[in-house]
């Protein structure tokens, strides 16, 4: 860098500032999005301390007036007002989307790790694990949800301990479905990562007297799970979007709620653009979060250094 010629240095600085402007915009957008979400949720939980429950955080009229005052944007004043009117529905649906994704991903991970380990290091259990993975990956997720909800009617068997946590017990059926399905996908990502841990690592673990299982726990997993982060992030991102399938078993998550408004107002395009943007914001948050996690747990020389 120090030896860079002046023009190159300037170009670099310009590129840097470009990047930092982009970064700043992204951070601002993220802060606005999450600020709006969290404040909306708190408002709802506390029974409407900021605005009455179901009302947007900013008055529709004010937004319409603001748009109307700006030449060129005046034509969109009504649309802007409509979007603002939609925000309470969006924030409410997004809550379930976030919770279903978070809980399913976590529970799925807990299942996926042993699935992947048995797949790589098991004998008979490797076949069981393979069978599970192929069955769950090889059939449509929506069909799986239908079997759990309509077929097995699991919503009526939600155990008392967790029943009532959500307004409707069907949310647990969705979480179960995404957990079982996601575990299969996560296991595949983790399996690939475990296989890339060098054989010599296991030999060395065994040589100091660790059992096979201890070696897997103390040596293979800490490395393999780090390798798995980039591909595992895919599953995180997919799950955010696939969680919209919960709407088909009547879980009032983001897609379900906005779809309902769309079928009442027929403003499909606008509503699904806004809904899509909301999913996009969640997905970007997830991938940024996982980048941070990857950086935080990175170890010099372990796995490929991520290119910035």
């Amino acid at each position: 860098m120090a030896s860079a010629t002046r023009p190159a240095a300037i170009r670099e600085r310009v590129a840097d500032s470009d990047r930092s402007v982009g970064r700043l915009l992204l951070v601002a957008a993220g802060a606005l999005f999450w600020g709006w979400l969290v404040v909306s949720w708190i408002n709802r939980w506390l029974g409407g301390v900021i605005v009455p429950v179901g009302q947007p955080l900013v008055p529709v009229g004010a937004v319409e007036a603001a748009f109307g005052a700006i030449p060129g944007l005046a034509a969109y004043a009504a649309d802007a007002g409509f979007v603002v009117e939609l925000t309470p529905v969006l924030s409410r649906g997004t809550w379930l989307t976030v919770v279903i994704t978070g809980v399913s991903l976590t529970l799925g991970f807990i299942i996926a790790v042993p699935l992947a380990v048995t797949r790589v290091y098991g004998r008979f259990s490797a076949w069981l694990s393979l069978g599970y993975t192929e069955l769950l990956r090889g059939t449509p997720l929506l069909a799986q949800l239908f079997v759990l909800y309509y077929g097995l009617n699991l919503a009526s068997y939600v155990p008392g301990a967790v029943s009532g946590v959500f307004a409707r017990d069907v949310v647990w059926v969705a979480i179960l479905g995404f957990t079982l399905n996601g575990a299969a996908y996560q296991a595949e990502y983790i399996r690939g990562a475990l296989e890339s841990v060098e054989e010599g690592q296991i030999t060395a673990g065994r040589a100091i007297g660790l059992s096979k299982l201890e070696t897997i726990y103390h040596v293979v997993l800490p490395q393999g799970l780090r390798y798995a982060i980039p591909s595992w992030t895919n599953e995180f991102v997919y799950l955010i979007k696939y969680s919209s399938l919960a709407g088909f078993i009547t879980v009032p998550e983001l897609y379900y709620r906005t779809n309902q408004v769309a079928s009442e107002t027929f403003r499909y395009t606008l509503i699904f653009v806004v809904t899509g943007m909301t999913y996009l914001a969640l997905v970007l948050t997830a991938s940024k979060l996982m980048e941070r996690v990857e950086d935080r747990v990175s170890i010099p020389g372990l796995g490929a250094e991520r290119e910035e």
Binding site: G200, Q201, A204, G205, A207, P222, Q223, I299, L302
Partner: peptide, 13 residues
């Protein structure tokens, strides 16, 4: 019985 390997096999993490 301690063992030292040709390829070191240090725990990379």
């Amino acid at each position: 019985v301690g063992m030292v390997f040709q390829g070191f096999n240090l725990f990379a993490h």
